[in-house]
Design a binder for these strands. Structure first.
Lengths: 340, 340
DNA sequence: CTGAAAGCGCTTACAG
DNA sequence: CTGAAAGCGCTTACAG
């Protein structure tokens, strides 16, 4: 069943049939009625490939998450992002093509797709600080938006949560709780998120006149195991608090602290980042910085669709605020004296 | 840059250029050389829509996960499935289109897509026992494969883990540990997985001559909160063990047990199902049934691709074995006497 | 408001 | 092994 046949059955030309299917207002009520009836009757659905070829648009957007296998397994952050992008797309009548791409060969495939006209635009999620895919996209003409900001390049559209301010707030909260030897477990420093959260940590300390001690900084690679090991490295330096750059690493830190017999928050206060479902269920429940992932995903697709449909518009730089969620791991219930 | 131009630059016809691009063996080495060189030089990528229209195949498969928002957030199972399907597709030069579809309106959209020729085949993940999408697919001609078996319909191709045997093994393990009042927290009973895991539980008890007491069965809806509440309902009936139909509910059960001051496994042994990353990190680490999700995802795409490329082949019914993973929550370290 | 026609960029019998 | 040609099923100026 194709347009031709629908047109014939409706007693109009293919052009007119096409117009009613695409909601073109320049159609008589009568013709519209007839075509719609036949479409319903025949259960007609236009062929996507033909449409894509003729119109130059496919009504699908690509979502690429350049994250290794491991991260996706354990970090709900990615799941939430995928879910929110998927549902926002569906709500706007777009479909989403997904690539979870770490290895180089998979990425090469994506480079191809991007040039094949298979998608109308792309959303690139948690990228490294200088992602080759972003470079390629920049050189091409496909609309795209990055999740995570690109301070280095003013031409990149992005939507992001404000990691620097978030981390800053996390550490300020610990300072407010009276902690003075505040350690941090960092994410990978080739990652924008990893870098920003460390910067926020340093800013907060400096602002308070406290030194930034390298002994109190350990890399946790955004993984639970990494958080565990990092905490073990930090412990000998007697921190009284730790800011973990994500919830997962905080889980590892909690485990390391527990294993040495210390208590959270009495001996060591912990603040994390992301506010994934893990945080609320940790023992003790984690004080953490809420990252508006759902909103980020929604805005990314809405912005991208606007870029696709109204190509002339100005650059998008959307920075969403984070929020401190106070639970039990920071000792907010125990003391209220200010160190700063 | 299109095929026409590539052909011209290579000094061959469009047909020949197309042949080398599609690896047709019937091309002279000379022509092949020339075209390949030009393709590389011009960085040519064939237009996907045109290809799809002409060839009738798009080289993309659809993955639909009819799961609510909540489940995807908290259950790593879905993430792992998405990841494994995605990587298997990429490895076979297919792309994946993703739908995470709960609400009916989103599903209607999928019905359209399926008929639009946008995908060559579909994988339908954790479905309800009588999914309307599956019914529609059955009526159409698009190759598809279900994750989860369809005992009710012999024409449905599927790949699945053997939930009945898995649950059976879980409960037998508890019996072996000397437990006799074994409760279960079930998944939704409109879910194949939920039903099967309950069946496995009942089989194991009956096989052992033990009664199936309705007081020892509580629904947990596959969620953490549901598991918590279910465990609270079970506790007054003094179970000495509980089989939770997934890891997440086991986490909730653990929390409920802890809240009443009872110990795991001394007072109540716990066995879960799925072996998601959560299980190993629980307190205490959960004994659970490993579900080979990664393998399921891989096999689903490999089978689907075979169905797409060699349409005549026989039905596929692939049932993968599960495996009991013994950790600390079942008391295997405490006693070894057999009750049965 | 409508239709005839060109065109989107490929693949694939077909004939040689 | 190769090319001319038909065709995949739409959209969209264009002219009326």
């Amino acid at each position: 069943m194709n347009l031709e046949q629908i047109a014939k059955l409706s007693g109009v030309s293919r052009s007119t049939a096409s117009r009613v299917i695409n909601n073109d207002p320049n159609v008589s009520d009568n013709a519209r009625e007839n075509v719609k009836r036949i479409v319903r009757l025949m259960n007609y659905v236009p062929n996507a490939a033909a449409r894509g070829l003729a119109a130059g648009r496919t009504q699908v957007i690509g979502l690429v998450i350049p994250t290794g296998v491991s991260a996706l397994f354990s970090d709900p952050y990615c799941s939430i992002l995928i879910q929110s992008v998927s549902s926002a797309c569906n709500a706007h009548n777009y479909s989403v093509m997904l690539w979870i791409a770490q290895p180089e060969y998979e990425r090469r495939q994506i480079h191809q797709i991007v040039r094949s006209g298979a998608i109308d635009g792309a959303i690139i999620a948690p990228t490294l600080a200088n992602d080759t895919l972003v470079q390629a996209l920049l050189a091409g003409s496909l609309p795209f938006i990055v999740i995570g900001h690109y301070p280095a390049n003013g031409r990149v559209n992005y939507v992001d949560a404000d990691d620097i301010l978030g981390a800053h707030e996390a550490v300020r909260h610990l300072l407010r709780m009276g902690r003075t030897r505040i350690a941090t477990i960092t994410g990978p420093q080739n990652t924008i998120t990893g870098i920003d959260r460390l910067m926020g940590y340093m800013h907060a300390l400096r602002e308070c006149g406290l030194p930034v001690e390298s002994d109190l900084i350990a890399a946790g690679g955004f993984s639970e195991g990494g958080g565990y090991i990092a905490m073990q490295q930090l412990l000998p330096h007697r921190p009284d608090a730790v800011f973990a750059a994500n919830d997962i690493m905080a889980m590892g830190a909690l485990r390391a602290i527990r294993d040495t017999g210390l208590r959270v928050p009495q001996d060591i206060a912990v603040v994390a980042f992301d506010d994934t479902p893990l945080a609320a269920r940790a023992e003790p429940p984690l004080t953490t910085i809420h990252r508006p992932t759902h909103q980020v995903g929604n805005l990314a697709v809405e912005t991208l669709i606007e870029m696709i449909e109204y190509p002339k518009s100005s650059p998008y730089r959307i920075m969403l605020p984070t929020e401190l969620i106070i639970r039990s791991s920071c000792g907010a219930a125990f003391k209220e004296k200010l160190a700063c």
